[in-house]
Each structure stands twice: as structure tokens, then as C-alpha cells.
Design a protein around this nucleic acid. Structure first.
Lengths: 226, 226
DNA sequence: TAAAATAGAACAAATGCTCGTTATTTCTTG
DNA sequence: CAAGAAATAACGAGCATTTGTTCTATTTTA
């Protein structure tokens, strides 16, 4: 699959995140009308991402966010009860989308090689589409409270397990070589993460996501295909 | 080479960093006696690393640092003129050590395969020994001023170039396959970085640095060896 | 005892958050 | 369908606290 095809197949993640955040936090948000909430959550999350990526969440002040989102301090606090809550909710909702999309695409495949290619591609495509969110999530996870941080770690391990399960299945079907598949998955994950952690570098070198996906698949295949 | 052997071959990086920092900033540091400076720089850097890794440099206050290092606020400011300067100096000195050690080991090798193995091993061993420094450096680089940030990026690209040069040399000698060696080096770098970015995960799984180095070498060899 | 090093109170600026007020939208009623 | 009333949303100055930094007083060292 090409990235361009992928884009056509998935809904707009931005609005999804805002709608889901509203539904899940309806009781905490002091604003009642859905349309208003979604419109402003989008402003808040957009500004959080923009400022957060450029100077870090800790360094972002509520005044920065107010200026960036176009909402007053007071308005911000009628959507979220604290600065930290913005981070928690935003990262939490993003994680859900990631899980949903990955599973939706993986369920279509049966062959281990196709599954491996799919998980590599879709992970890269997702991180391409939401690259700022991923970068932000990676860099700011340590600023979350312990339980939210745990969720973040679990989310990482979940993706890794998707990969290691595929490797193990492939080995059992005599398609992949034997080996430490957990460590293998870990290393593959590292390569996938590099795509959004070093976005600027790859852009400067004019390496696109389709090319990167194909390269990673070749790299991994060389080691695992029998 | 094993990590245990590596450790015997290199001097204590902690004291090296402090001594180098003193020599280079003698004029800026208001304290005159070298022994005093080095003793206290070590306390300051240790505390910076400890607090910085756990809560991030931005969130670390000078009072945290004062408590953590056992020095008063006044004392801290007779070693550094600002909080940011601590970060700049510490990261800068660390980068120097990394460069020195990598080059010292690489110069001993001639064969591309041996060079590749060396750069993988030494990079991993260095990041094992200084893993907190590397993690801290990676996470806080974006909080540096533009010129220091540029140095940080250059330092990353330098390591990558070490790898890509080896791959290209190996290709010219018909030992390695053809391909996009810059992209290859980039991906190898990502795997190397994972070692210190996910230190906790590997520790929990009881995977040691020697085993990880051997795995990465096998992974890379499968793709590159003709 | 003079120089060097450290201490920690004091200061201005900045920060997260609150709360009384104002503006806007929606509903009610003659 | 007005126009007043009620509900909802947005505003932003102000509060207590915390922050990086400075400065003078004190202690330590040689």
C-alpha cells in the first residue's frame, strides 16, 4: 500500500480525537454544547501540539496556550481543570486512534509476510499523518502522572507485541527464521520510531515515507526470511 | 570485545568531563582552586543528571539542584552564570568524550566488517556507561539555544557518518552490498539509540549490552554482507 | 588574617489557577 | 414574532506561589 491510498482509507484523526475527548469527559467539561466544545478543543489541542513540540509542554505556559488557541485563560479552564489534564486527555485519545487503525488494517491480512509488511507500513503511515502528535507523545510521556505514564508504556509494548507475534507466527509456519523475536520486534520498533523522531532529517534528505517503509521491510526481510 | 574489557580501556568519564569543563571555563568560573571546582562540578553535574532525567531539565529548579548537589544557591552561581549554562556546558563536554572514544577505537581497525562491529560495539558500550547522560542529552537537546542545538544535531550526524563511511568503504571493497548507505546508517543509528532510550525495558528483560551488540551486528550483517 | 568559598535571604518576574464580570446564545411569553 | 429573561460561554485582572538570579554577610581555608 502507498501512503496516498492509506490517507483515503482513514477518517480525519483530528476531529475524531476532539469528539472522543468530549464524549469521554462530558462531565468534567463545563461547556455543554458539543459543537462549541469540539470547535474549541480543536483549537486547544492544535495550539498545545504546536507550542508543545517547539518548546516542550513544561515550558508552555497557560498564557502561551491562551494566545495560541485564541481562548482566554478562563475559557481554557472551563474545558480542562488543569494544565496536566490537557496533556493526559490529548495523549490518551491519540493512543486510542493508533490502536484502532493498526488493528483495522492488520485484521485484513493472514500471511505473516503480508502482516509484517502491513504493520510496518501502517505504523509509519500513522506516524507520518500524526507525526507531531507522536513526537510530542514520546517526548512528554515522562511528564505524565504515574498511571498515565504506565498507559503510555503499555501502548508502546502493545505495538511491539503486534510485531513479535507476527514474527513468531511466521517462524511456526517456517516462513521466518528462528531467533529472539521479542528482541527483534524491539529493534524493528526502534526503526519505526526513528521515522517520527527524526522527521526533519528525513525531510531534508527528501526521503518519503513510502521509500522508508520499503527500506525497512527489506532490511527486516533480509534477517528474517528463511 | 566485551563490555567488561571496554570498561578497563577507558578512563573515568565523570572526572574527565569535570576537568575539561573547568579548563574550558576557567575564566567564567568564579572559584579558583581546581580541586574545589572539580569536586563541586561533579556534585552539580551528578545532581543535574539525576534530577534532569527524572523530571526534565525545565522542571528542575535551582532549588532542586541546590538540595540535590548540597551546594547553596550562591555557590551554584559562582560556578555557572545561569541555569542554561549548566546544560550547555554539561552536554558539550559529554559530546567531546563520545567523539574521542569512538575515534580512538575506530582507528585501530582496518577491515570494514571489523570497523562496523567496532562502531556498533563502542557506541553501545559508551551509551551503556553514560546512559543517563545520553538519555538526558537526547531529551533536552531541544531546550538548548539554537547554536548549542546545532552542535547537538551535528554530533548525531557525525556518528551516522562514521557508519555510512564504513558501509561505503565495504561496498567498494566488495564486502558489503550496494544500497542507500546513508539511509542504512540512519537505521543502524536508530537501533543503537534504542539501547539508551529504552534502557528500562531491556533491563527488565535481562538483556545485556553484549548480547544486544551481537544481535544488532547479526541484524545488520544479514542485510549488508554479500 | 586576608583571600576564597559558601550561605541563604531578598527581589522582580513569571506561573497556574480563580472568580467576578461581561458578552452571547437560547428560551419563554405576551 | 418581539423582547425580555435565563442559561451558557468567554473574558482577563488579580492572587498566592514559585522561579531564576543577585547580593551581602558569614564561614572556611591557607
Amino acid at each position: 500500500m502507498k501512503y496516498s491510498e492509506f490517507l483515503k482509507l482513514i477518517p480525519d484523526s483530528k476531529i475524531d480525537i476532539c469528539r472522543a475527548a468530549f464524549l469521554e469527559h462530558k462531565d468534567k467539561i463545563q461547556i455543554k454544547k458539543e459543537a462549541v466544545v469540539i470547535k474549541n478543543l480543536e483549537k486547544i489541542f492544535d495550539a498545545t501540539l504546536k507550542i508543545g513540540v517547539s518548546k516542550g509542554f513544561q515550558a508552555m505556559t497557560m498564557r502561551d496556550l491562551s494566545a495560541g488557541s485564541g481562548l482566554s485563560m478562563g475559557a481554557l479552564y472551563s474545558y480542562f481543570s488543569s494544565k496536566d489534564e490537557i496533556l493526559s486527555v490529548y495523549l490518551g485519545q491519540g493512543r486510542k486512534i493508533v490502536k484502532q487503525v493498526l488493528e483495522a488494517f492488520l485484521v485484513k491480512e493472514n500471511d505473516p509476510v503480508a502482516k509484517l509488511e502491513t504493520v510496518i507500513q501502517i505504523h509509519l503511515f500513522l506516524t507520518e499523518k500524526m507525526h507531531q502528535w507522536f513526537y510530542f507523545s514520546y517526548m512528554e510521556a515522562k511528564n505524565l502522572n504515574p498511571e498515565e505514564m504506565e498507559k503510555s508504556i503499555q501502548s508502546e509494548l502493545y505495538t511491539e507485541k503486534l510485531v513479535s507475534d507476527i514474527l513468531i507466527e511466521g517462524y511456526k509456519k517456517n516462513i521466518f527464521k528462528d531467533g529472539d523475536h521479542v528482541l527483534g520486534a524491539s529493534v524493528i520498533k526502534a526503526m519505526l520510531q526513528d521515522w517520527y523522531l527524526k522527521r526533519g532529517k528525513y525531510a531534508r534528505r527528501k526521503i518519503g515515507v513510502d521509500h522508508y517503509a520499503q527500506f525497512i521491510m527489506a532490511f527486516v526481510s533480509a534477517f528474517y526470511l528463511v
